[in-house]
Design a protein around this nucleic acid. Structure first.
Length: 422
RNA sequence: GGAGAGAUGGCAGAGUGGUCGAAUGCGGUGGUCUUGAAAACCAUUGUACAGCAAUGUACCGGGGGUUCGAAUCCCUCUCUCUCCGCCA
């Protein structure tokens, strides 16, 4: 959510930048500012009336103390009128505030000036390519066949107990999954992140704070009942919301968390969802940072480097892509996606998305810090996957298949306890 | 699940209708003193909106109500604690 004060200051710039996201904000921003003007005016009137009312109440108090009931009754009548007027104006003010809020939450975050214009992922810019695309054995198989052959993941079992998109990891598959989780967390700890293990269910306020609600409610699993709880689509939601309604003392704050992630993913089909490519439940290790605004882009770079290192160590070929305006998420100002090459599918699979949200989430979260002057300002928030598991899993087994087995990347050996799947 | 108690500033903790944005203590910040530090003493120390400012307004878990006036009374929701029951 953009801040109204900033909108006033940067209206023209915001309008042109939002065009990069394909969002026409011209009319909205004008409406917004007009309504905010009206709000200010109304508040002014309300404040004056309330001030008068407060003054009268004081005087009435004095008069009662003196035993002057007669004069007090006269002032009381006056006070009642003021109160009624104030109430009317207050209702107006609240309505205006609600209208302003409703407009604000419709407006996506303003993209960073470096974001290229474009509509789909075809317009994204490749920043870096790294690693070698492996030469596969002659009759190399896609991961879903390997999963079945080596009994690593049982999709039928998942379908039986839950539904499609909910895989069951088995034996060495389960072990490899657990190894990856531990490896990622350990690497994040080394980089100075603090580990959290949050709930996998969050309330409405949390969903609002990070921007999933109300606009993207249909992407979440909602728990029935009157409690308004949702399964988390990413650890970003609970972890970032730890800091909701806070004025934090020390920046940066670095958190990492492993959680399963739950997504409705309505309307996907075909090879997009084959095997581990797209699931309703998947495991992910997330990194989240709460930072000083002046440092956020530097820190974004650090996070990109950190994720690169993970992929380097796993010996996976990958590319880093800067998202174009049209592909950028609602809340993000700048996002780099990581895609690994899944050799037998011959496809690039997105395994991480590292974003700077600037103060867009912080404003929803009311997450602030005090600057040197003692003024409170909004923090910047960032997050990234480090990393999302299933596609890494898929790429590892596809790229490392040999005749009669699958090699495990060296860095994982101490975690898996085996160096080959047979 | 049953019964009871409670929610006040960074923390602890007063305040049961009238000048309370809120005593007091601790903590934080600045200063005096000191070679330096500690101690002591003095001052200061919440957030938001409006305003150049002075200042005004709102906020004592959330929402609503009573009243000229609510931290204080009423309703409701949420959460916490204690006891009993159940349970991984």
């Amino acid at each position: 959510m953009l801040h109204i004060v900033n909108i006033r200051k940067n209206k023209e710039r915001y309008i042109s930048l939002l065009k990069v996201k394909g969002f026409d904000a011209g009319v909205l921003l004008d409406t917004l500012i007009a309504k905010d003007d009206e709000r200010k005016l109304t508040q002014h009137k309300v404040d004056d009336l309330l001030a008068k009312g407060n003054q009268l109440a004081k005087e009435i108090g004095e008069l009662y103390k003196l035993g002057n009931v007669k004069d007090a009754d006269i002032l009381k009548k006056e006070s009642i009128v003021i109160k009624e007027d104030a109430k009317l104006l207050q209702t107006q003010q609240h309505n205006l505030e609600n209208e302003i809020q409703e407009i604000l939450i419709q407006i996506p975050n303003v993209p960073h000036h470096s974001v290229p214009s474009g509509v789909t992922d075809k317009d994204n810019i490749i920043i870096k390519e790294s690693g070698f695309i492996p030469d596969l054995i002659e009759d190399a198989k896609p991961h879903w066949e390997l999963l079945d052959e080596y009994k690593l993941v049982d999709f039928d079992l998942g379908t039986k107990i839950t539904g499609s998109g909910f895989p069951v990891y088995v034996g060495q598959g389960a072990k490899l999954q657990r190894a990856l989780i531990n490896y990622f967390i350990d690497k994040n700890l080394e980089a100075g992140y603090t580990e959290y293990l949050p709930p996998h269910v969050v309330n409405k306020e949390s969903g609002f704070g990070t921007g999933q609600l109300p606009k993207f409610e249909d992407e979440l699993y909602k728990i029935p009942g009157d409690s308004d709880l949702y399964l988390i689509p990413t650890a970003e939601v609970p972890v970032t919301n730890f800091f909701r309604n806070m004025i934090v003392k020390k920046l940066p704050i670095k958190c990492t968390a492993y959680t399963p992630c739950f997504r409705r993913e309505a309307g996907s089909y075909g090879k997009e969802v084959r095997g581990l490519n797209r699931l309703h439940q998947f495991d992910k290790v997330e990194i989240v940072q709460i930072v000083h605004p002046e440092e956020s882009y530097q820190i974004l770079d650090n996070m990109v480097k950190h994720v690169s290192e993970l992929l380097d160590e796993l010996e996976l070929p990958y590319k880093i892509v800067q998202l174009c305006g049209g592909d950028l998420s609602e809340s993000s100002a700048l996002t780099f996606d990581f895609e690994v090459y899944s050799a037998s599918q011959k496809r690039w699979l997105e395994v991480s998305s590292v974003s700077n949200f600037e103060s867009y989430q912080a404003n929803r979260l009311k997450l602030r810090y005090k600057d040197a002057n003692g003024d409170t300002n909004l923090c910047h928030t960032l997050n990234g996957s480090a990393l999302a598991l299933p596609r890494i899993f898929a790429a590892i087994i596809e790229n490392n298949q040999i005749l009669g087995g699958i090699n495990i990347p060296k860095v994982l050996h101490s975690y898996t306890g085996f160096d080959i799947i047979k």
